[in-house]
Each structure stands twice: as C-alpha cells, then as structure tokens.
Amino acid sequence: MNDAPQRVVLATRNAHKIGELRAILADLGVVVDLVGVAEFPGVADVAETELSFAGNALLKAVAVAEATGLPAIADDSGICVDALNGMPGIFSARWAGRHGDDAANLDLLLAQVSDVPDEHRGAAFVCAAALAEPGPDGRRIVEEGRINGVLLRERHGEGGFGYDPVFRPHGHDVSTAELTAEAKNRISHRRRAFAALAPHLVRG
C-alpha cells in the first residue's frame, strides 16, 4: 500500500509561486506532493492565448496534465482597476510590453491613473485556479478568488511581488507588500481561489 501523497504538477517554472502555493495548501490542510514543470524537462511552456483568467488557467492545466500524465493545477491572476474598465486584467504581467517587468508595469499603471481621484481608485486582485486530470475523462474544474481594495499613488513596502506595493486591501491600512507573507497568504486572491479548488484536489 502506497501512502505517499499524490503528485500534482503546478503549471509554472516560478519557484516563488511554487513555494507560496505549497504554504497555502499546507495551511488549508491539503497534502499533495506539489512540483513545478521544471521537474519535467520535455514539457513546453504554454502560451496564454485565452481572454479570461479562467480560460488561461484551464488552458495551462490541461496542457500540463496531458504532457505529464499527472493531475495539474494552474492559475492566472492579475489586477483589475475600476478606472481602467478592469484592465490590466489578464495583461497584468506584460502591461508595459515585456512579460514580468514589475517595475515598468507599476510605473505605467500609476502614470495612467495619476489624475484619478481617490474615491475612484478601486481595484481588485483576481485569480482563477484550475485543476485538470489527464485523459479524455479527466476532470476540468476552475474556481475564482478575488480581493478588493484601492490603488495607491506610490509604492509602499518591499515584500510581495507584482503590483503588491500599490494595492491596499479593504480592511487594512497597509499595502499587500507591507504584509508578512503569512498574512498575505491568508487573505490573497490566490488563497481564496485555491481554497475553493482544494476540495476537488483532495477527492479520492
């Protein structure tokens, strides 16, 4: 009898994301052997070609599940700014034109809303989390989490990544970059999405 936890592949090569999700799942009581796609050298990167967080998350999860033969989970997330009609949204990671350039993305976003008054600076972090199992009969499940707040006028804090330094969640007086990793993980959009996905992940 094999009591080893089920191996699940997270569709990312980002070690920070893997560590963050391991901490979130452990806090939720989900016991799995979570690994990234770097463990599978033959798996190609998946282009995010869908037009929604849910579509991109499911696209990545299905591709990785089929490539590895293991259950796969993926997420797609970003910041949605009210004054920009929900943008950057799915383009958050490449808002300034180059994927993953956090500083340039932040500078552009702050410039675009520099003249927006405080009462109209509402924003939300949104995350879609998807689970896919290999094969034609494998499950395909997507859950969403979000955290509402306001967009600050300048950076605050050194923690987190992405847009954390300019986002203040409702109910807090600091940015998400000023929260400890543990505090952020308890309230984050990613935590909420994976908390919703967790019951499906641990199904026998």
Rank of each mutant, 00 (worst) to 15 (best):
G42F: 01
P165L: 03
I147G: 14
N148P: 00
R7M: 10
H170P: 00
H120K: 15
A15I: 07
H156C: 10
L108E: 09
L108T: 05
G122T: 04
D173C: 06
N85Q: 14
A104M: 06
R155N: 09
D101I: 00
H200Q: 09
W95I: 02
V142C: 10
F125P: 01
L59Y: 00
R121K: 11
F53A: 05
A183W: 03
S175I: 01
V150H: 14
G55I: 00
T180N: 06
F167V: 02
P117C: 06
V202S: 14
T12K: 05
A96K: 04
G162D: 04
D33I: 09
Y163C: 08
G171I: 07
R121G: 10
A132N: 08
G86E: 07
W95E: 11
A103H: 13
N2Y: 00
T180L: 08
N105T: 09
H189K: 11
V202R: 14
M1G: 15
A67I: 00
G171Q: 13
G89D: 11
D173R: 15
A4V: 10
A124M: 12
V116P: 02
S92N: 14
E20M: 03
L10E: 03
G145W: 06
P165K: 01
G100Y: 04
G159K: 03
I187T: 03
H172T: 07
L58Q: 07
V113C: 13
S92T: 15
G78V: 13
V9G: 13
T180A: 07
S92H: 10
G55M: 01
T49Y: 09
A96S: 15
M1P: 08
A65H: 03
R121C: 05
P88N: 12
L108Y: 00
L59V: 00
V31P: 03
L51F: 14
I141T: 12
H200Y: 13
S92Y: 12
D33L: 09
D118C: 05
V113F: 08
